[in-house]
Design a protein around this nucleic acid. Structure first.
Lengths: 357, 357
DNA sequence: AAGACACGATGAAACGTTTCATTTTCGTCG
DNA sequence: CGACGAAAATGAAACGTTTCATCGTGTCTT
């Protein structure tokens, strides 16, 4: 049988199992021979407490193995140490790494992450937000938000909000973590161009977000800059699935003047393109160069390994938490922290120089 | 400008933005002209309240747009509507789908998920558990637990716990969701055998979990059953990464009698095997058949598409929540709910019949 | 008609913190 | 030596629920 002394000596084990109820600050106060308020002051590092009393309290805390009750603190202060993370879908291979960035940063600072998948459904998003607000989370990280800015304003009025991966630059009052999307697309196209390609197709994504439109715009801007002909048949719209990549390639290769290279708006479609081209008997990159976007882990696993544009997914998550905690510390959630994280080409095996004809 | 009526009529928008403080049950009681206790009874569906009063309360709730404060309820009842999910790493492509299964089931029942990655680090796991207990979560789903059963017992003494993907069958007091690992390995090997292969290698994982040992045991049992020679050089141990799959193939193909087929303990290593074999000039599956384990999404994206053993990842998550909520409803967390979910072969393109020599 | 009884409503107490208006203590100065 | 003020400690109130012992009302019995 474990006695109290042995039990309280082991700092690691899970205490107060069956039966025993946890000690409260009141117990600590009695044990230390001071008042409740003093215990609170010690635990929250208020300077107004005599070092001799501080010792007594800390000793009592250790002796009783006291752990402060976060629920009670939240009820009183109206702010928990939880962070709400709303993402489209953890099952989309883009998001686990971002989520991990959030988790690591949050955990290091003593915060916990509430995970919410909204499936890009505005109704689901609203429901989650209301629930998070009711739970008194200390802030919300909203990735690819669906709700209008007016509603973001409403939330920002009562708690810290960080927007992540919103397409457009936003007004100065919002905290936002963005990625240099336009630059990423441009660098990818430049990379193909430098390899000698001029007939470059672009497999864009759905028209459902500003960043998608931005990527398409970057493609046209690139063509104009290079004085390349704009052929609308070189632009294909897919739904971000690898199946749609396959369809794109079927259409593109049926043209009388098919492209010699293509860029896709995400890795999944790029891989679909490669697989379909290979199925049609073409060599990648020999007959068709392909460049993706996102730099998912699986780009190392397809054949050939996919050259792609890296998005700093982990850093996006970590930076969001940094902004959030900064809001809380300085108590100004409207200062409008902003960052645009860089993107860059990851050279692998799916792009080859255009052979001189 | 929005007036109060319009505002409270819109059930969807995010209310009580800046300034305004949320109404409490006391406000509802006053508005409805009943006592606080009656409001509580109505909100919790206690039968002892007159339907006429119930109406009055519900009307007041609507009028004030009252939302109950979960933090206060948790403080009083010592049980939140949050579920702690502890997994090794959301970045491992196995877990997002499981996590999604948890989230969907939890969300449907009105619960929220706290996401914790323990990196299979027992210290991190303990810290998370203590934090979740302190937060008064209503239960913990522990995937691939590192802590010993004695500690699981300690937690189970104070709250609902469901263990997921523990290798061995456990005593009757634990709630556990398992997968038919042994059967999956066996079915995969049988599949290769039926295709004519007898020289079958097995790329196992680390010795760090019971399920890993179980998979290796299933391989040997299979050989014995088929009266195939047991060659220890046909068993390679990797760390679940695709790089280790590559190394396995290099070793295996250097043997004087190389295998004609291999099974890997996860998809990542299987794909590494395929890629390395291809790099060495072999055709997959023509010269080497490969079968994986897990059925990750990316098995559709490699070339050839990987034949593999499906694990019902989403269902594992969903089932865990089902068990957890059942524990809460019946208030018996020690009844020992158990399930072993089925595994099955997913035929794709990486296995070919052995040509008659 | 009076007592017993069932059914609902009531509101104070409790959950474990933080906060803040008071009180106590103690050193300093006139 | 007494008074003053700063520093520190105190403990009641509050946060928003749930719970439960108590009370009021109306019905039924005899």
């Amino acid at each position: 049988m474990r006695n109290a002394a042995a039990s309280s000596a082991n700092d690691d084990s899970i205490e107060n199992a069956a039966g025993g109820t946890s000690p409260t600050m009141k117990d600590v106060a009695r044990e230390a021979g001071v008042s409740l308020g003093t215990v609170s002051n010690v635990l929250n590092n208020k300077s107004t407490v005599l070092s001799q009393n501080k010792e007594k309290v800390l000793a009592a805390v250790r002796r009783l193995n006291f752990r402060s009750n976060p629920v009670a603190r939240t009820l009183k202060t109206k702010s928990s140490r939880d962070i709400g993370l709303i993402i489209p879908n953890i099952n989309n291979p883009f998001y686990p790494e971002l989520a991990r960035g959030v988790e690591d940063a949050a955990n290091k600072a003593g915060y916990t992450v509430l995970l919410c998948n909204d499936d890009r459904d505005i109704k689901k998003e609203r429901t989650y937000i209301k629930s998070l607000v009711a739970k008194n989370v200390c802030g919300i990280i909203l990735v690819k938000p669906q709700i209008p800015l007016s509603e973001v304003d409403a939330i920002a009025g009562i708690m810290a909000v960080v927007l992540v991966d919103v397409g457009a630059p936003l007004g100065s009052a919002y905290n936002v973590v963005n990625v240099d999307d336009r630059g990423g697309i441009t660098r990818g196209l430049e990379y193909l161009y430098r390899s000698g390609h001029t007939r470059i197709a672009f497999v864009r994504g759905l028209d459902d977000s500003l960043s998608s439109q931005d990527r398409a715009a970057a493609y046209f801007a690139f063509l104009r800059r290079k004085k390349l002909p704009v052929r609308k048949e070189y632009m294909f719209q897919g739904n971000y699935s690898w199946q749609d990549g396959g369809e794109a390639v079927r259409k593109l290769l049926a043209l009388t003047q098919p492209p010699t290279a293509l860029m896709a708006a995400n890795d999944l479609m790029a891989i679909g393109c490669m697989k379909e081209a290979q199925k049609m008997g073409l060599r990648v990159p020999g007959d068709l160069s392909v460049i993706g976007y996102d730099n998912l882990d699986l780009t190392n696993l397809c054949t050939p390994r996919l050259t792609t544009i890296n998005q700093p997914k982990y850093e996006m998550g970590a930076k969001s938490v940094e902004f959030l905690l900064d809001c809380l510390k300085n108590n100004d959630c409207r200062e409008g922290r902003k960052v645009v994280l860089p993107t860059d080409v990851v050279e692998r095996e799916s792009v080859a120089p255009l052979p001189i004809p």
